[in-house]
Measured scan of single mutants.
Amino acid sequence: MAEQVALSRTQVCGILREELFQGDAFHQSDTHIFIIMGASGDLAKKKIYPTIWWLFRDGLLPENTFIVGYARSRLTVADIRKQSEPFFKATPEEKLKLEDFFARNSYVAGQYDDAASYQRLNSHMNALHLGSQANRLFYLALPPTVYEAVTKNIHESCMSQIGWNRIIVEKPFGRDLQSSDRLSNHISSLFREDQIYRIDHYLGKEMVQNLMVLRFANRIFGPIWNRDNIACVILTFKEPFGTEGRGGYFDEFGIIRDVMQNHLLQMLCLVAMEKPASTNSDDVRDEKVKVLKCISEVQANNVVLGQYVGNPDGEGEATKGYLDDPTVPRGSTTATFAAVVLYVENERWDGVPFILRCGKALNERKAEVRLQFHDVAGDIFHQQCKRNELVIRVQPNEAVYTKMMTKKPGMFFNPEESELDLTYGNRYKNVKLPDAYERLILDVFCGSQMHFVRSDELREAWRIFTPLLHQIELEKPKPIPYIYGSRGPTEADELMKRVGFQYEGTYKWVNP
């Protein structure tokens, strides 16, 4: 592979701008107003304001973009700056750019259920340069409990009458099928589907988006991507930290609602779906819905739930269990780990287990898709061969690698495990991989909904998990304890083995 010439960040961002501006969906010269509902909250200060700053800094926003914060707290732009700027990672050389960014910011205080507050917000936006005809993007960085009041008031008082209007809704989209349907029906009564952007930030990850290209742009994968060759698929999300004093919020939802029903299920769809007619948003989402419709409700015998306990040999936070978090209700049975087996009941995947695993306070930070292939028929190497695996590593250190057998150097035919490896950090030294939120917010500006969740996708996802969630809430089974920093409950490994996964433990990928 030829040595790549190092590029400056300015040059890299210039390439990104060229890609972005050559499309006809990006209205570079139009006025846009980006409204952050819930501007005083954690999500706004840690993710949304920093993301908008990065896009502005790199010249990736339309030229005439204004940012308006809205929340109940009586704040000023200076207050917003004070709480969000520490997350910007701005350099001293960017000081003038930073001043320009905050000059485009404003803030309006108001209630979430008060019509007069929204009329005041609308008047404020109209007073901005060309504000009355601007395109408006409303980001709901809010708890779902206020979605209905907020969307109703936005629709009645704050819509642009000339430009387009788009609304970005953060997960969780309800707690179960019934609450999700209620919320979807409410929002759909106010906005068209092409105006609604239900954001799952995992769909903005580079390697998640790469799944489609790997599958449908490489001839070698087509013939082997089926039940005849693939023994099982494992989708993993692991965090090495616990709730760390923020367990009160987590306890309301648990690990299945927080990660599995959305992030992991979306990745499953991209692995299992048929080739779409095109890369058009609805063509892709149509195929994802077909996959979900082929999955039956989760069966309790295919589920393992766990909850982390303190590690007596650990240090600091590792010595504390979930129930030691003062914000967690006493005696909570909320799971911090889950392993679930699903089956896609169609011709391509009949009988292939899709194993979804996620948890907190585990032994490493990792998100990946792992396809394990069947054993080689007619073994001539005296059971020395391990199964081939194709691994798409989402985070950290984005990579695609194939675990395969090669001859060990020497005189004899002794096979050993090795890999074919594409590590993004080595291959793409001159490429700026956008943060997931950067990519998705740019998608909203461009009107691309491919990486957002459609209402029928959402409904099918909740259909699969709601009976299990209701059973857990009714019966309150005690989750299996696992030690902070471990791989999780051993019962999860036993479940995976029972459905056909072979864990060798003899080879570990190392970032080159």
Rank of each mutant, 00 (worst) to 15 (best):
S73N: 06
L98A: 05
R17F: 15
V169D: 01
A6V: 15
E252L: 09
F34P: 04
F34A: 06
Y49I: 08
N122Q: 14
L214T: 06
Q195F: 04
P240W: 07
Y112L: 01
L235T: 05
L203D: 02
D200I: 01
G254Q: 05
S117P: 14
F34E: 03
Q195G: 08
V146I: 14
G247E: 08
F88R: 01
V233S: 02
R120A: 13
N105M: 11
Q11I: 14
T10P: 07
A39T: 01
F253P: 02
R227P: 06
I67N: 00
Q133H: 12
N229S: 09
R104G: 05
G163H: 10
S29D: 12
R219D: 01
Q28W: 11
Y112C: 03
S160G: 13
L211A: 01
N229F: 05
F88T: 05
Y197E: 03
I67H: 05
I234P: 02
G110Y: 00
D114N: 12
P86H: 10
F21A: 11
D228G: 08
F216G: 00
P50S: 08
K152A: 09
R192Q: 13
I154Q: 02
T76N: 13
I162N: 13
I187M: 12
G14F: 14
G247Q: 05
A109F: 11
G38M: 04
M125P: 02
Y139S: 07
Y249A: 04
P143I: 09
S8M: 08
K47M: 04
N153W: 09
Y118N: 06
F26Y: 15
R104N: 07
I33K: 01
E18P: 07
Y249K: 03
F191L: 09
F102K: 03
R175Y: 12
G242D: 05
F66Q: 10
W53I: 03
N226H: 09
M159H: 12
M159L: 13
K46I: 01
A39W: 03
V169C: 06
M159K: 14
H155M: 08
R227A: 09
F216M: 02
T243L: 08
G69C: 05
I33V: 12
G245M: 10
M125E: 00
Y49D: 02
L98H: 01
P92T: 13
L137G: 08
R166Y: 00
N218Q: 04
G59V: 01
V213Q: 09
G247A: 06
Y107K: 01
K238I: 01
A217W: 03
L214E: 01
Q133D: 12
Q161V: 12
R198S: 00
L137K: 00
R219W: 09
Q119F: 12
V146R: 06
A90R: 07
N126Q: 12
Y118E: 04
K171Q: 03
K205Q: 00
E244T: 10
M207Y: 02
N126I: 10
A109Y: 15
T236K: 05
R17W: 08
Q83D: 12
M125L: 11
K46N: 03
S40Y: 03
Y112E: 00
K82W: 10
Y49Q: 03
G254M: 00
R136S: 09
M37Q: 08
C232V: 06
L130Y: 15
F87R: 06
K205H: 01
I52F: 08
L190V: 12
L121Y: 01
A115N: 12
S184A: 11
I224N: 09
R57M: 04
E94A: 05
D100R: 14
G254H: 01
H27T: 07
R246D: 03
C232E: 07
N153M: 11
V208N: 11
L137I: 11
S29C: 15
A217Q: 06
T76G: 08
I230A: 05
T65Q: 03
L16W: 09
I15C: 07
L55C: 10
S106P: 02
L130D: 09
V68M: 08
P50H: 04
N126L: 14
P50L: 05
E18F: 06
E239K: 02
W225L: 01
I168L: 11
F191I: 05
I224V: 15
R72D: 03
